[in-house]
């Protein structure tokens, strides 16, 4: 306690001192100084992004030259013969993200509606807090949960069920060992639910109460009210939320690496193992000792970087447009 109060004293003391000595400039000059320094600092953020890009391209260059277009078209990843292609990894990332979003998006929207519109404010706060707490769970914990609980559940319960009822689809054929695309997708869907939910909730909150009351006054049921006055006008906001969730799923590494089976291949079955761009970098980088192998991993990193950049840009532009049109 004592030290805290002395600390406060020193801070306020030094502040008044500074006002007297260091910043004894004209107000305009102060503004100019702060503005200039802020500008330098914020341009560093952009510089870092550019530097990252340059570094990735530089390190990945050997593999791009050596493999040419094969780096994007072949289904091969062979560190022994140094033949690399990002295609199976792009596929793995895309398919897991796609399934995760398909599952998570409707659930998140419904959760957001339920929390905002159905629950009493106190309960809403509590449930909202719990949903957002999922986002705070470390991804390695999700990975462990995937190995020890979700994997066996899929192997023993979900996969036999899917095979029995939808076995005619190539998606659900072949043996399931509880580790593979489906498990990774399910874990990802849980992980991105809080992201989508909390953004959707914010978007839904912007709907004026008058409109909701108006709809109810015109005789709409609660469901119709939600659909007409909340979901439909919020469409672009919802899309923005989903794209941000997609961005998170694209880059998720540890949880996916633990449950996807890490086999760079393109198979129709969701039970089969695959590998994602992030998982293969995490797995192989530490012990990659040939230059080409490191270049290939950096090449994969470059593709992932560009992909997430595009996804985020799309999300931002949708949210911007939405904000502009709603104003």
């Amino acid at each position: 306690m004592k030290s805290e109060s002395t600390l406060k004293n020193t801070i306020s003391g030094s502040l008044s001192q500074r006002e007297a000595s260091v910043f004894n400039w004209a107000p305009q000059k102060q503004d100019q100084f702060v503005f200039a320094s802020m500008r330098v600092l914020s341009s560093f953020v952009i510089l870092i992004l550019v530097a990252l890009m340059v570094m990735l391209i530089k390190t990945a260059w050997p593999v791009l030259v050596d493999q040419g277009t094969n780096f994007f078209t072949q289904s091969i990843w062979n560190p022994v013969d140094e033949e690399f292609s990002a295609l199976p990894l792009i596929y793995g990332t895309m398919i897991t993200t796609f399934i995760a979003v398909i599952i998570a998006a409707p659930i998140s929207i419904m959760v957001a509606l339920f929390v905002n519109e159905v629950l009493t404010p106190k309960l809403a706060k509590l449930v909202g807090l719990f949903v957002e707490m999922i986002a705070a769970v470390p991804s390695i914990v999700f990975g462990l949960w995937g190995i020890f609980y979700l994997g066996p559940f899929i192997k023993n319960t979900l996969a036999p069920f899917l095979k029995e009822h939808f076995g005619y689809l190539p998606l659900f054929q072949g043996p399931s060992f509880g580790i593979g695309v489906l498990t990774a997708s399910l874990i990802l869907s849980v992980m991105i639910t809080p992201t989508i939910t909390s953004i959707c909730r914010e978007v839904f909150k912007t709907v004026p109460a008058m409109r909701k009351e108006g709809a109810l006054g015109l005789g709409a049921t609660k469901f119709e009210m939600m659909l007409l006055t909340i979901v439909r006008p919020s469409f672009s906001g919802i899309v923005g939320a989903i794209v941000l969730g997609t961005g998170r799923a694209l880059g998720e590494t540890m949880a996916v690496a633990m449950v996807i089976g890490n086999q760079p291949q393109i198979k129709a079955s969701l039970f089969a193992p695959a590998a994602t761009m992030a998982s293969i970098i995490a797995n192989e980088y530490a012990e990659a000792d040939s230059e080409m192998h490191i270049a290939a991993l950096c090449g994969v990193g470059l593709v992932l970087f560009v992909l997430t950049l595009i996804v985020n840009l799309v999300a931002r532009s949708i949210v911007w447009n939405y904000n502009r049109s709603s104003k």
């Binding site: 062979n78 560190p79 022994v80 190995i147 020890f148 509880g178 089976g261 890490n262 086999q263 193992p273």
Partner: peptide, 29 residues
């Protein structure tokens, strides 16, 4: 067909992370 190395192109199977990952997967499956 496969050869020697720290990372290989495996014809079949699933990959687990670390000795502990392989141990867990074998034990459970």
């Amino acid at each position: 067909t496969v050869g020697r190395g720290k990372s290989l192109q495996w014809p079949v199977g699933i990959g687990s992370k670390g000795n502990e990952g392989v141990t867990a997967t074998v034990k459970q499956t």
